[in-house]
Design a protein around this nucleic acid. Structure first.
Length: 290
DNA sequence: GGTTCTCTGCCGC
DNA sequence: GCGGCAGAGAACC
C-alpha cells in the first residue's frame, strides 16, 4: 500500500527549510567540535528540548544525532588514514578518547584493521570467480568475513575491473575450485531468487545504508516496495532520496534485493546492473510465488 | 557493576 | 508543533 503524497504549501515549505536550517547548524556543530557534543548541547544550540530536537534531527536526516556523529568520526578516521597519518594520531584527531574504544569499533567501521586500511587493504585477501547465469555474467567476491560483492553484467572483464577498482590494494585471488561451488550457489539464487543466499555476507556501508539494506532483505520475494515505503520502514519517512542512494550503493546484487524497490507508481526506476535484469528478476519472483 | 546518555513512546498543552 | 516524563537499552567509566 502506498500512501498519497502530501501536497506542499508555501508555508509548509518555509517551515521545512527552517527545520532544515536548524538541523544543518547542528550538523556543522558536530563536524566542527573536537569532541562529540552531547544531545543536550545540540538541543540548546537549536533552542529546542532534547526530545523534540532529537525527533526533528532524525526526521530531517534519517539518522539520530549520535549516528551522525559516529559516521562523521568514521569519515575523519578514513581521511586521516588515507592521508597516511599514524593510526594513533588519527584516533585522537577523530575524537576518540581512548585507543581501546577505537579498536573495539574499527573493524566494523572500516571492514578491516586500521593499519590494513591505511595501506589500502593490502593485507586483505579477496577471493572471486566469474560465472554465467541466465542474466549474463556474474561475479562473486568474498573477504574472510563473507560475500562482499555480487555483480551482474555482459562482460566478465568489466566486472573484474570494477572489483579491482573497489579493492585497489587487496590481493584478488581467482579461480579456486571450492570457490566455484559458492558461485554456483549464487547463480542458483539468481535463477530462483526466493531461496535466499544462506551465506555470511561482509556488508560494508554506513549505519544508514545498513538499515536500508536490512529493510530490503525483509521484502519477501514476489513483492515490491517503494523508496518511500523503505524510508518509513526504517523510521525515516522523509529520507526517501537517501534511501534511493543507499539502494544504488548496494554491492550485493540479488542477495540484498534492491531490485524489489520500485517507483511510487509501480514503474521500475533504475538498477545498477541494468533495468532489464531488474525486470527479469521481478518477473521470475512473481512466477515463483504464483 | 554502577552511572550517564541516547532513544522512543506517550501524553498534555 | 512543542515540551516533558518514563522506561529500555547502549555507552561509558
Amino acid at each position: 500500500m502506498i500512501a498519497p503524497l502530501k501536497r506542499c504549501n508555501p508555508d509548509g515549505a518555509a517551515n521545512h527549510s527552517a527545520k532544515a536550517a536548524i538541523v544543518a547548524r547542528a550538523c556543522r556543530l558536530i563536524e566542527q567540535s573536537e569532541t562529540e557534543p552531547s544531545l543536550a548541547k545540540l538541543a540548546a544550540g537549536a533552542g529546542l528540548s532534547t526530545s523534540h530536537f532529537h525527533r526533528l534531527f532524525k526526521s530531517v536526516t534519517g539518522v539520530t544525532p549520535k549516528n551522525y556523529a559516529c559516521a562523521h568520526r568514521a569519515t575523519r578516521v578514513r581521511q586521516g588514514l588515507a592521508r597516511g597519518d599514524s593510526v594513533t594520531g588519527t584516533i585522537y584527531e577523530a575524537g576518540f578518547n581512548s585507543s581501546g574504544r577505537f579498536y573495539e569499533q574499527s573493524t566494523r567501521m572500516l571492514g578491516m584493521t586500521p593499519s590494513q586500511y591505511r595501506s589500502g587493504g593490502c593485507d586483505e585477501d579477496i577471493r572471486f570467480a566469474v560465472g554465467q547465469s541466465s542474466l549474463g555474467a556474474i561475479l562473486v567476491a568474498s573477504s574472510r568475513k563473507g560475500v562482499a560483492s555480487i555483480s551482474l553484467g555482459d562482460d566478465p572483464d568489466v566486472l573484474v575491473r570494477d572489483l579491482q577498482d573497489r579493492f585497489p590494494n587487496a590481493r584478488l585471488i581467482g579461480a579456486d575450485k571450492a570457490y566455484e561451488e559458492l558461485v554456483a550457489r549464487v547463480v542458483g539464487l539468481v535463477e530462483t531468487p526466493g531461496i535466499g543466499l544462506g551465506l555470511p555476507m561482509d556488508v560494508r556501508g554506513t549505519a544508514f545504508q545498513r538499515r536500508v539494506w536490512q529493510a530490503l532483505q525483509e521484502i519477501p520475494a514476489g513483492q515490491t516496495a517503494s523508496y518511500a515505503d523503505i524510508a518509513r520502514k526504517i523510521g525515516a519517512p522523509k529520507a526517501v532520496r537517501a534511501v534511493a542512494g543507499a539502494c544504488a550503493a548496494n554491492h550485493l546484487a540479488v542477495a540484498i534485493p534492491c531490485h524489489r524497490v520500485v517507483r511510487n507508481d509501480g514503474t521500475l526506476s533504475g538498477y545498477a546492473w541494468g533495468v532489464e535484469r531488474k525486470r527479469a528478476l521481478l518477473e521470475r519472483e512473481a512466477a515463483e510465488t504464483r
